[in-house]
Amino acid sequence: MPREGLEVENLHLWRGEHHVLRGVGFALPRGGCLHVTGPNGAGKTSLLRAACGLLYPESGRLLWDGRDVHEDLPTFHSVLMYIGHEAPLKADLSARENLRYWIGTRRRIGRDTLGAALQRVGATAWSERPARTLSAGQRRRVALAALSLLLVPLWLLDEPTTNLDAEGQQLVGTLIEEHLARGGLVLAATHHELPLPRSRVQRLELTHE
């Protein structure tokens, strides 16, 4: 029986002349949360992008439930959600429309489900406003709504708490805890602390050398 979850073995990644990831490895079981830390430029984002198959590492293996993900990337992509440090929102669409078009390419969602997700992140009051008029924190909240709408096992979050107020950060913690409780996996890269009990979180420290 292959191991369940995400396994990364001895990942080496070069960006041009720069050796970004030097032999990174970890195993993330179901219900596990890995907090990737490190100074700016240590390769946190690169690790996340390599872990979702956007970047092709020079060597090393990436396994999902014991199978190499590069053998079947579309299937791997259908179990993961990656949110970069900027939420992919269109300035001319409202928060609600943005969510509908973003999540709708992956999952059928009804108006009510969408409304409930927007309410959950406190977006009801401004969900019809064009994204152009939203603050950075509000845009983040739309991304959190997207996360809660798509019930995929693996979440890859780049700086999930940036720009959020205290209540918003707590919301990130709650969403992650609920996700872990239903057997989900979270890989979060941030140099802030995650709003979670320390016992729930594995840490991986990336350095320049």
């Binding site: 669409l93 078009y101 709708g104 999952r107 059928r108 798509l150 995929v152």
Partner: peptide, 29 residues
């Protein structure tokens, strides 16, 4: 509890996804 093992049963087909992409680009334009 929802099963997080496989893709959601209400996953959108590629046709639905493509229709939404088309609709989104037309709306934006």
């Amino acid at each position: 509890m929802s099963d997080t093992r496989t893709a959601a049963p209400d996953a959108a087909s590629v046709l639905e996804a493509a229709r939404l992409v088309l609709e989104r680009d037309l709306t934006l334009a």
